[in-house]
């Protein structure tokens, strides 16, 4: 820890001397950083590498061969998985998951950031009560809500459509995101808002032109989570979707692993690996935007 001396963010141009000379301690710190992070990466990624390698094992090797490498490597698992299920091509499941994921991102980011702005910046009657209620919705295990929520969507005639899976996202029902964004907004200097207000900006303008650009890291984070959680959601699609052509990946994946008929472990792992690729790609793209927000850049002067 003590070796880390320089500033965590990119060294500012204010101190050019610091940057040019490269004192030996700094090189040592760099080496320690690289060694440490590479070791950590190996440990963290090993189970994933094992999983990818396992997707090349024939199903019969599961259980008997717990090692990293397959004894009889095969592409059959992927071939089988790509053949689809009951005449429905596998890309269809990917497509459904993608639509649901994008919908979840759009809905969550818009509705949650609006609610968060209200909670963090606006003084209105009932705010403490509503805030407590929002935290309260996080506390109840969802299993006891399944049946009444199902009844609501059934009575609205929305079963077997994507609506029950997306409506909640557009109504900020996941308090996680609202609270996350609240925390980021509260950390912004209020002077910005006040300055804008003096300049005659309304709340909508302040929200849109000042707050939103400044909480970009929080919004990017929310987008990432909203997409990934939607991508991996199993229970919602299970309850609300009936037609197999509407199934997203987590439902389709189960079909390769029915214990009561015959489980194909090779195919199960193979489709899990395939399902990982698009979310991985999504993360890799979006995390690039996870850079210093406008506030810190703008303040560098």
């Amino acid at each position: 820890m003590s070796t880390i001396e320089s500033t965590p963010t990119a060294p500012p141009p204010v101190q050019p001397i610091h940057k040019r000379r490269q004192p030996p301690r700094r090189t040592a710190a760099n080496v320690a950083w690289i060694v440490g992070i590479v070791l950590l990466t190996v440990v963290v990624l090993y189970p994933l590498v094992w999983m990818i390698s396992a997707s090349f094992k024939p199903s019969s090797e599961f259980g008997s061969n717990q090692g990293l490498l397959p004894e009889n490597p095969t592409f059959d698992n992927f071939i089988k998985v790509m053949e689809g299920v009951a005449g429905i091509p596998t890309w269809r499941f990917f497509w459904n998951s993608t639509i649901l994921g994008i919908g979840a991102v759009i809905g969550t980011v818009i509705s949650s950031s609006m609610a968060a702005y209200a909670f963090a910046r606006l003084n209105f009657k009932g705010r403490p009560l509503f805030f407590a209620m929002m935290i309260g919705t996080l506390l109840l295990p969802f299993h006891v809500l399944i049946i009444p929520q199902y009844m609501i969507f059934r009575n609205l005639g929305m079963v077997d459509t994507f609506a029950p899976l997306l409506v909640g996202k557009f109504l900020a029902t996941e308090a996680f995101f609202v609270f996350l964004i609240v925390q980021f907004i509260r950390n912004l200097p209020k002077e910005l808002d006040e300055a804008a207000r003096i300049d005659g900006c309304g709340h909508w303008r302040i929200f849109w032109s000042i707050t939103v650009p400044l909480i970009k890291p929080a919004l990017i984070t929310s987008s990432i989570f909203a997409f990934i959680w939607s991508w991996n959601d199993f229970l919602g699609p299970l309850l609300y979707l009936n037609s197999p052509e509407n199934y997203p990946l987590p439902l389709a994946l189960r079909v390769f692993n029915d214990q009561s008929s015959a489980s194909d472990y090779g195919a199960t792992v193979a489709i899990s690996v395939l399902a990982l690729l698009p979310v991985m790609l999504f993360f890799v793209i979006f995390q690039r935007f996870l850079v210093a927000g406008v506030a810190t850049q703008g303040l560098k002067g």
Partner: peptide
């Protein structure tokens, strides 16, 4: 005929919900 399928445990979770909330196939 609209066919729909699931693995065994999930199948029964869905049926229990439908039995309670209506909409059994």
């Amino acid at each position: 005929v609209n066919g729909t399928f699931m693995d065994f445990p999930a199948y029964w979770e869905k049926r229990q919900t439908e039995a309670a909330g209506g909409g059994l196939p």
